[in-house]
């Protein structure tokens, strides 16, 4: 998984994707799939960024190329964080999702501003503040 600076994705998300792809190819990695996973608010600021675009990739790489790849990613200012871990096989859904991303009608929404609030998910419970009804003070005065 690679976390990319939203500023790079705002300019052109395909070039942002190519950035990761080229870094992998440079060190002899055979890329199986690479796709945009999500754009999210970070749990804590990384490199003074509050949001980032996550790219998820599956690739084969030899032991010789891995340290060099790690060093390149560490030095890159566009890749703000990465996580490389071993995996037995590429999940079946990954190929479908990566293929869907390559279709012409696939559109990536522009990343919001860094301070934009996280949109509420459908399965998320409403916050306690929303559920509490605050009585109108004028009504209370009438009751007196």
């Amino acid at each position: 998984m690679f976390l990319l600076d939203n500023q790079v994705v705002r300019e052109d998300w395909k070039s942002a994707k190519n950035l990761v792809q080229e870094a992998l190819n440079k060190h002899g990695a055979k890329v199986r799939t690479l796709r945009r996973w999500d754009e999210r608010k970070l749990a804590y600021p990384i490199a003074n960024r509050k949001r980032a675009t996550f790219f998820l990739g599956y690739f084969d790489i030899g032991v010789d190329g891995l340290p060099a790849l790690r060093r390149d990613l560490e030095l890159s200012e566009k890749v703000i964080r990465y996580l490389i871990q071993s995996c037995d096989a590429v999940p079946e859904t990954e190929n479908e999702l990566a293929a869907a991303e390559q279709s012409a009608d696939f559109v990536v929404p522009a990343p919001p501003a860094d301070d934009a609030p996280e949109p509420r998910r459908e399965d998320e419970r409403p916050s306690l503040e929303d559920s509490i009804e605050v009585p109108d003070l004028n009504d209370l005065e009438d009751m007196r």
Binding site: R40, L42, A43, Y44, I46, A52, R81, L83, Q85
Partner: peptide, 10 residues
């Protein structure tokens, strides 16, 4: 791992 990539807080 989720903490490392900023998905969960420390």
């Amino acid at each position: 791992q989720a903490r490392h990539v900023g998905l969960l807080p420390f």
